[in-house]
Every structure is written in C-alpha cells, then in structure tokens.
C-alpha cells in the first residue's frame, strides 16, 4: 500500500525529467536569439575588442548553438550554471543565495491563501441561500479582479503609509542582524530566540505575503464553495442527515474530505502562478528574492541567471503539479485501491 503510493510519486517525478529537458532547450534557444552579447556583458565596459573576442571564444559562443547547449547541459549537470555577468561570480551561488527568501515568501503566501480561501469558502457556504452569500461572492469576484501587484500597492498605501502598521521594504529593521544557520531568515530569526528580531522578521514579510496570498485566495474560495455545494447534493450527505448528524458533523466529518480534492488540485496546478507572482511583488517591496534578481538580470541581460531562474520556476511548477496529483490519489480511495 505505502510502497504503491511511493511508486506513483516516484513515477510522476520521473515523468518530469523529459519535460524539464525540453524546457531547458526552449529557454536556452530563446535566450540565444536575444540581440545581446553575453561575452560583452560579462566584461567591464572598458574591455577591448580583443578581450571580448577571447572571452567569446572561451565561452564557446562562436560554436554552433547545439554545441553550446550541450556544453551548458554538461556543466549544468555537475552543478555549474555558468558565471553571472552582473555579479561576476558563479550563477549557482547567486541564485541559491536568493532562493530561500523566495521560498519563504511563497510558502507563507500559500499558507495565507489557503487559510483565507478555506475560511472564506466555508463562511460563504455556511450562509448559502441568504443575501450574505451573494455579498460574499461579489467581494470574492472583486478581489479576484485585482492582480497581486495592485494589491501590493494598495497594501503599501493602506497599511504602510496611511496606517503605518507594517514596514514596506527590506527583511529586517535597520541595524538588526541574524546569523545564518539555515539560510531561511524566518527560521533563523526564530532560532535566535530574540523576540524583537522574530517580530521584525515577520512584520517585514507580512505585506508581500498578504498581497501575494490574497490575490490567490479568491480562486480557492470559489472552488471550495462550488465543490461543497456539489458535495451536498450527494445522497450520502442526505443519508448522514437522516442518521441525525448535526450540520457541523456533516460539514467537517463527511463533506469536507470529499470537497477538498478540487482545492488540492487547484493549489497544486496554480502554484506556479504564485511563484511567478513573486516577480512583481518582490520588486515592489524590494524583497531580496529570486523575483527581484530576475528583474535585475533581465535589465542587465545576465543570461545565465535568467536561465537558472526560469528553470527553477519551471521545476517548481512541475513538482507541485506532481505533488497535487499524488495527493489527489491519496484522498480518493477509489483511485488508491480500485
């Protein structure tokens, strides 16, 4: 049983590999078509033409594109993603340095979105048939119409400027230092045990998380609400009622486990969107994560960094899709032991 589930998960993850390989080809090709010269970008502006030529030769840019790709791929497998033109250091190091911040942001936003979405969905469902349900659905649509970056700006205006509860940029109050144990600032802050530091770390991440999470939550509200309504039309719900179960027991004991499946699949498939949303939100809050790095890399045509980040986005989307699939299996006994 357990081994069978594990096999499904492993098989799903293996299926990612060819997709991922195709994506690398596409991204690599697209970046080589761009009218920028990586060799020139990786040297100071004062470099001579000879120096640029030498660099180009060293980087293999004079060879055919498929040779370039195979060179890149061979290096990438050993963990060498090239050198960042902008920072003049290893791309892998630059990207890995920023990755934890974005992971923190996305995970927090996801938790926030699921909490808000589930609560909203349950509340709107609880008042079904009344005028409040329509009000709830209209509010949901309104929030759904607002993109994350607009929400970010609204939050800065409301909670950062008009009623300054939360700081609007950076990750910690000025002057604070957190030793890096895990690389994840929130965890490190908690590890220091210093209450002021912990509060500060959470305050700084609050606005980006809310902006990103709130933008994602209306979809969850809608899907959960619709799924609950659908579940309640099933005859086992009616039968549970005829056995004398209370509304609460029916909702949490009977209906929710079935109604949650579409939400799990939604979160899994839309997670990539959440990850992509960090691009603008991090920019707005000057949050030192991948999104910010990506924007800067685009401005400076730092191809190896763009490549690395694109692949991280792609990998996350694929992995979360697979996790959602596996979870849907776990939640559905008909699939699990059919």
């Amino acid at each position: 049983m357990f081994i069978a589930i594990l096999r499904v998960i492993v098989r799903r993850l293996l299926a990612i590999v060819p997709v991922f390989a195709v994506v690398t080809v596409l991204v690599f090709g697209a970046l080589r078509i761009l009218p920028v010269d990586p060799a020139q970008m990786s040297l100071p502006p004062s470099a001579t033409i000879e120096q640029v030529e030498a660099k180009r030769e060293a980087m293999g840019l004079n060879r055919p594109i498929w040779t370039q790709y195979s060179m890149w791929a061979q290096a990438a497998i050993t963990g060498d993603l090239g050198e960042s033109a902008q920072y003049r250091t290893s791309t892998a190091a630059v990207v890995l340095d920023r990755l934890p911040a974005t992971i923190e942001l996305v995970i927090c936003a996801l938790i926030f979105a699921v909490c808000v979405g589930m609560t909203g969905g349950l509340l709107i469902f609880a008042v079904r048939g009344t005028a409040l349900e329509s009000v709830g659905l209209v509010v949901t649509s309104a929030v759904m119409a607002l993109p994350d970056f607009l929400l970010a700006l609204l939050f800065i205006l409301l909670l950062g400027v008009l009623i300054p509860i939360f700081p609007v940029n950076g990750r910690l109050d000025p002057g604070m230092q957190v030793p890096s144990y895990t690389g994840f600032l929130l965890i490190d802050a908690v590890l220091t045990g210093d209450f002021r530091v912990i509060v500060s770390a959470f305050e700084h991440i609050a606005l980006p998380v809310m902006a990103l999470g709130l933008a994602f939550s209306p979809t969850i509200v809608r899907v959960l609400h619709a799924s609950l309504i659908n579940t309640y039309q099933q005859s086992y719900i009616q039968q549970a009622r005829l056995r004398g179960l209370s509304d609460r027991e029916i909702l949490f004991g009977q209906a929710l486990k079935n109604a949650i499946v579409p939400v799990v699949i939604l979160v899994g498939t839309q997670f990539g969107g959440l990850f992509g949303g960090t691009l603008l939100v991090e920019m707005i809050f000057s949050f030192p994560g991948l999104g910010n790095l990506m924007v800067k890399a685009m401005q400076t045509a730092d191809l190896s960094v763009i490549m690395a980040i694109s692949l991280i986005y792609c990998a996350t989307t694929l992995i979360f899709n697979s996790i959602a699939d596996a979870l849907a299996y776990l939640l559905n006994p008909r699939l699990r032991n059919g």
Partner: peptide, 21 residues
C-alpha cells in the same frame, strides 16, 4: 430522534455512503 428512534433505508445504496471513508 433520527438514527436513534427513526431509521432510514435509502433508495440508492451505492451513493448513500461516503466514498472517502
């Protein structure tokens, strides 16, 4: 009273029990 003093036998047994429990 339901389930204790009054029992019910449904029309469609195939859908009268929760599929995920």
């Amino acid at each position: 009273l339901l389930g204790r003093d009054i029992g019910f036998i449904p029309q469609e047994p195939m859908s009268a029990l929760n599929p995920s429990l």
